[in-house]
């Protein structure tokens, strides 16, 4: 074997080790879209609570009103389902293009790692809503989602860890500044998703997708 052959052999082995342990079909494009859904959802939520009739910053309604609460929960659920659906759809499409399945040891590891903090956080948020303590709902969403991303990052692109840490930081800031939840929620689930989705799209998908 000559020099180039040896080096490319070593490189392909390293690449295989990485590819076998990490889910590399995660779609950056789906991150961008999820961020857009979140921003639209936040805008709709803002309209429900603050109304359009008064000046910015003055409320027409309060979250404690049942009708408003139901609408907010519906908006949040639609955003969540759309985001998950888009992520699965686009990741499956990317996996097909890479000649891989979407269901493999790496994706199973990713789901397991992400699932625990996400389910725990989701239940915790539901309990808070049921008990009428709404103040920490948005910070809890951000913090638990961030923890899920950090936990899952070892099974996919390393960039996801950075995104997770930023979500946790935003969640903690939101907890310190009551009343600004929607802004932090929009920054975390909207702006950061678009930003990281774009970075991942440029880094890993241009030319592939």
């Amino acid at each position: 074997m000559n020099h180039e052959q040896l080096q490319s052999e070593l490189l392909s082995i390293r690449h295989l080790m990485e590819r076998s342990a990490k889910f590399i079909s995660l779609s950056g494009l789906s991150g961008i879209l999820a961020g857009c859904y979140a921003l639209v959802g936040a805008a709709l939520g803002y309209r429900e609570v603050y109304g359009l009739s008064s000046k910015v910053g003055y409320r027409d309604h309060y979250v404690t009103e049942e009708a408003v609460l139901v609408k907010l929960v519906i908006i949040a659920s639609v955003v969540l389902l759309l985001s998950i659906g888009t992520a699965i759809w686009l990741s499956a499409r990317k996996a097909r293009k890479q000649g891989q399945g979407i269901w493999n040891p790496a994706s199973r590891g990713l789901l397991n790692a992400v699932g625990v903090p996400l389910v725990a956080g989701g239940l915790f948020v539901l309990v808070m809503i049921a008990r009428g303590t709404y103040g920490l709902v948005a910070p809890a969403c951000l913090i638990f989602y961030g923890l899920a991303l950090v936990a899952g990052s070892q099974y996919t692109y390393r960039d996801v860890k950075g995104l997770g840490i930023l979500q946790i930081v935003l969640g903690l800031l939101a907890a310190c500044l009551p009343g600004y939840s929607l802004i932090f929620w929009s920054l975390g689930f909207g702006v950061l998703h678009i930003l990281y989705g774009f970075i991942m799209y440029v880094k890993y998908e241009r030319g592939v997708a």
Binding site: L16, M17, E18, R19, S20, A21, Q100, G101, N104, P105
Partner: peptide, 16 residues
């Protein structure tokens, strides 16, 4: 693959 992962099953190896 087995160095990078604790364990790997037959079908996943085949596909990879």
């Amino acid at each position: 693959v087995l160095m990078a992962n604790e364990r790997y099953d037959f079908n996943a190896l085949k596909e990879l």
